[in-house]
Design a protein around this nucleic acid. Sequence first.
DNA 1: CGAACACTTGATAAAAGTCAAACGACGTGG
DNA 2: CCACGTCGTTTGACTTTTATCAAGTGTTCG
Lengths: 224, 224
Amino acid sequence: MDLLEDLEKSPTSFIKDDIIIRSETALDRLYVLTKGWVIAEKMSHADSRPIVHVFLPGDIIGFSELPFQKTSYQARSRTSGIMCPFPSSRLSRLFVESPRLARLIFAAVTIERAEQEDRASQFCRNNAAAKLALFVLQTLDRLKLLNSNLRDQFQCPLTQQEIGDLVGLSSVHVSRTFSQMEANGLIQRHKSFLKVKDYDSLAEMSDYRNRYGSLNLDWVPAHP
Amino acid sequence: MDLLEDLEKSPTSFIKDDIIIRSETALDRLYVLTKGWVIAEKMSHADSRPIVHVFLPGDIIGFSELPFQKTSYQARSRTSGIMCPFPSSRLSRLFVESPRLARLIFAAVTIERAEQEDRASQFCRNNAAAKLALFVLQTLDRLKLLNSNLRDQFQCPLTQQEIGDLVGLSSVHVSRTFSQMEANGLIQRHKSFLKVKDYDSLAEMSDYRNRYGSLNLDWVPAHP
DNA sequence: CGAACACTTGATAAAAGTCAAACGACGTGG
DNA sequence: CCACGTCGTTTGACTTTTATCAAGTGTTCG
């Protein structure tokens, strides 16, 4: 617990549209995101700007850039929020100081990797409604992890253009598809809020499984 | 070194189309794949069968299923080959016995995660040639890691149907797009061999970066 | 209150999917 | 060693889905 708190000892606040990690630079630290939404976007030459990942409160920003000399994307905040930077050497020491905590972090990264696989295999299939369904359910369940009074809706600070850049659709088609899903009683929108009206149907059409619902951490023994 | 060799002490051979991991079962071990190709496919109800990942020699099969109670996909061999199973508790012990090796494995998983992000963000965009270009380059560079006499071509044991299931295209469109890429001098095919004729063009059209080309493992100190 | 900015709607174009048939390679068994 | 059947690939015709362009309608925020 002390070690975990140590990672969050220097909270820094940021405003909307801050650049948190610059593209093509060396990254020598990680950030615990404690409040706010941050997106990782590729600075591609084309006008489209693929969004590689959406970071939500509780996530650690920078893992996927750690083993490389230069960052491949930039991280930009979409809301104001708070993050806690710590040097990557701190993570390295953790493997010696607490093998148990290292295993937990390893498990966390592995879970995220599984979610990433879910996205890769779903988003590459051309069904706009299924893509959006997966985005909505994954985001809702991930937000619930750190915000337990969340039930069936959340505030989404991403524009439809950005959602399209994430799942691979044009903003126009995101709009149309969301409208149709709303007409079919699957979701409901109000301002920037997204409400899940029919979780089961959304889950079935996107072949979704809640990765946090049936964990097995037997191999992370309580007392090492 | 002893610890690494320990993981490969019980080599098992498999034939083509063996089921290595069954879907919806508990997984208590991992497999070092030393020879052959293995695919991870979702047993979806529909006739399409999304391919979540392709394992190549040197990969460890099962990481992404480790923290869950049940596997979400099945692993099936596409060639004959050799793998070395070891219990997941072995991985757990590794975190105590060798923090340095644990960090290296952590780094390896992180690199794979970055590649997965590359796939997710590219495959979700609707450009058949770019999808296939990314698949070809990623596969070639990954194969080169353990087979250094590989230069510009490799034997691909996947059918066009399977390649389509991986990148999200119909088999018909894979055929057409490959033919066109061949006509444009980007690749060349002969039997099941795929030859890269114009690496740079393929890399540019798919926004590819070789993840193993510019690693920074400073945070994995040589002497912990 | 007004000016960005985001979203919606319609018309049209491009990309990829589907169906079906033909072709080719490959392995098996006579 | 050849005939045959299976499986994978190619090709053509047509359909569906999504992208693009452009104009109009909110919405938000200084």
